[in-house]
């Protein structure tokens, strides 16, 4: 058991993570420890496996090999209650994935009520206060279709927050947005970071990585090739692939 090293301040520990899609090896052995309160930003070219890595963390993808521990519990163990685990790990998707047949309010309260986390009244009060924080309280009774992309993504973040997660995963949250809407989403995420949330963010927003991230990982071809705190990461990249990547995106 490698798990003996887990201490109280570790949020997520990943050892020897591999993922194949058929013959295609997308993750080729990832070892990574994420501590509570860290804001880890994952960057890399498309096809590098960064989204797959993120999706393995809440088992939206089943790892082919390797083990993942969340707050000390092995989630890759057989018989692990995946649903319970996911209630403590919020996820935000590139394409928002709001439920189009539910109002904004129902989008936020549906799961807390259904899973018995909260009573309806409590869930709605919480939803309204969360919506107020992102300035969309008056949209509570409308449907997702009536919102802009930036508004949808902010609602999606709030929907995840309604479950009071301990970790938030972001899978390219601004990649599907019009440029002028990127800022509003990033500022909600920055606020969340300030509140001390543990965050893992896959993104192409280098500014966000620099300013909000506490650590940046560079992935390519299924491996983490380099990582550092943001200042050093961007000022002094070492791996030739990273130097090349940064020269193209910065």
């Amino acid at each position: 058991m490698k798990n003996t090293t887990v201490t109280n301040d570790v949020a997520i520990q990943v050892t020897g993570l591999k993922k194949n899609f058929g013959d295609n090896q997308v993750l080729r052995g990832i070892d990574e420890t994420i501590r509570k309160g860290e804001k880890v930003v994952v960057i890399g070219p498309s096809g590098s496996g960064k989204s797959t890595f993120l999706r393995c963390l809440n088992l939206l993808e089943r790892p082919t090999e390797g083990r993942i521990f969340v707050h000390g519990d092995e989630i890759t163990a057989r018989g692990c209650n995946v649903d319970k685990l996911r209630q403590k790990m919020g996820m935000v998707f590139q394409h928002f994935n709001l439920f189009p047949h539910k109002t904004i309010l129902e989008n936020i309260t549906l799961v807390p009520i259904h899973t018995g986390l909260m009573k309806r009244k409590e869930a709605e009060e919480r939803a309204y206060s969360l919506l107020e924080r992102i300035g969309l309280k008056e949209k509570a009774l409308t449907y997702p279709n009536m919102l802009s992309g930036g508004q949808k993504q902010r609602v999606a973040i709030v929907r995840a927050l309604a479950m009071s997660p301990e970790v938030m995963l972001f899978d390219e949250p601004t990649s599907a947005l019009d440029p002028e809407m990127v800022g509003e989403v990033l500022s909600v995420m920055a606020e969340l970071a300030e509140d001390g949330m543990t965050m893992v963010v896959v993104t192409h927003e280098m500014g966000f990585a620099r300013e909000v991230g506490t650590r940046v990982l560079f992935m390519d071809e299924g491996l983490i090739l380099e990582q550092d705190e943001p200042k050093a990461f961007f000022a002094n990249p070492k791996h030739p692939r990273l130097v090349d990547f940064l020269s193209k995106v910065l």
Binding site: N58, L60, D83, K84, L85, R86, Q87, M89, G90, M91, F93, H95, N97, L98, F99, P100, H101, L110, V111, H114, T115, A156, R159, A160, M163
Partner: peptide
């Protein structure tokens, strides 16, 4: 129904059946 709908439901902690019943089947 978009696969993202199922993923959103499951990522929030709904069971497979609850996701099917509350999210996918109505759509």
């Amino acid at each position: 129904v978009d696969k993202g709908q199922t993923e959103a439901g499951r990522s929030l902690g709904l069971s497979a059946w609850a996701t099917m019943r509350l999210i996918v089947l109505p759509q």
